[in-house]
Design a protein around this nucleic acid. Structure first.
Lengths: 227, 227
DNA sequence: TTATCATTCAAACGTTCGTTTGAATGCCAC
DNA sequence: GTGGCATTCAAACGAACGTTTGAATGATAA
């Protein structure tokens, strides 16, 4: 019956994933123990190994649950933009918004745990463990290639290797901002209420990133024409 | 005698700190065990507790060895700039270069371990463990306040809270770039040989960050005048 | 009612963790 | 040479780790 299906099906799995998202974010992958995770999820200690096989597999499942969909969302948004543009070039601003939109939408989802995931993701970019890096790298790869092509088309005069660096910088800006929203507070003074307002954040991030992307080429590097 | 002083004085301490810098960077603070650290340093297992007291104290010592000096260097560089300017306003570019210079100089120090430290630092910004965050926060605080004042003076028309956000973004760009230089490779295509060339990196980072800092205010947020 | 099967549970597994201990070592002043 | 002292060493500590086990549980289908 589907009556049974709607309520407790996969309940334990979901509780574990939610707890893992939160605990991994708060304590790191090594710092959050199986006992902490299962206590938070209010399930038996053995449940993780039963449902996922191992702690590493759980980590992978935490990312798979959201990251693939998130990047597919990004690509779909970009596809839609290009369809609407009907062959005309997109503005860098629009491409940037298409990329960060998925992140910001998710960080507004405090109840569903999306916010936890976004912050966890920010941590994972600088994660030392190689399997995690590889996993994330391959989950991002299609979207990154797609956006690289879109930026290249929008900015034909920007050298390719320069574009790659600037995408790198943009991504760093986004990742750090999302990860650090309530961790390291190196610079005091931002209004706390703006912190999770995705609209405000979107405007600020887009302004900063697109200005950086369009920056004149540093003359001292190449003697080529400055844009 | 000073003959004795130059060679083995603090040798064990230094070997431990160097090994810790490298191992913490590669495996994280929890992932690098005392046995790994002491094996890498080729010292006895008990040496860490003897010389530093505990693993946590070692972590703190790793940061203290370089971070305070690094931020002092930043402030000194800014002081010098302002002295040379003799009351005239500094350009945002110059302030940015003063900030990132210390990082880039250190990342060129591959032999001395400075590069390891810089990457470790990039990781630490998103570190979940609270004591580490607090430690880093308080070590950065004076430099951050100093640079905030310098930027505010150079950009009097930029609202203060906007400046704080943009400093946040700039710092994220720098931190992520330094931390991720050989970890997550989300965007393929950058020339590997540029990766550790501080001059090239300085030009690229400064161009990106200063353009972002000077970006026009996002019109949708405030109805104030755009710069 | 009974057999089946996925799931949950308490308990224990062996391993590794950070830390402590007390003896051994080697250098220096006397 | 001898005593003092900082340092190094091998060994062990209890605690916590991820994982495994085999029995208990409870719903489903015959």
């Amino acid at each position: 019956m589907n009556l049974r299906a709607i309520k407790p099906l996969n309940e334990t799995r979901t509780r574990i994933l939610d707890a893992a998202e939160e605990q991994f974010m708060q304590h790191g992958f090594e710092g959050a123990s199986m006992r902490m995770l299962t206590a938070k999820a209010e399930v038996n200690l053995a449940a993780i190994n039963y449902h996922f096989g191992s702690k590493d597999a759980l980590i992978e499942a935490v990312f798979r649950r959201r990251l693939d969909a998130m990047n597919a969302e990004r690509i779909a948004e970009l596809d839609q933009l290009e369809k609407d543009a009907a062959g005309k070039a997109l503005t860098p601003d629009a491409i940037i918004r298409a990329f960060i939109g998925a992140s910001l939408r998710m960080i507004e989802d405090a109840r569903g745990g999306g916010r936890n995931f976004i912050r966890l993701l920010g941590r994972a970019y600088t994660e030392p463990a190689k399997p995690i890096r590889q996993l994330i790298g391959q989950m991002y790869a299609p979207a990154m290639e797609r956006f690289k092509a879109a930026f290249a088309k929008a900015l034909p005069e920007l050298p390719k290797d320069e574009l790659v660096w600037r995408m790198h910088f943009m991504f760093g800006t986004l990742a750090y901002t999302l990860a650090a929203t309530d961790t390291v507070q190196l610079i005091a003074g931002a209004k706390p209420e703006d912190r999770y307002d995705a609209r405000v954040l979107q405007g600020r991030l887009t302004a900063f990133m697109s200005a950086g992307l369009l920056a004149p080429l540093a003359g001292s590097i190449h003697v080529k024409k400055a844009a």
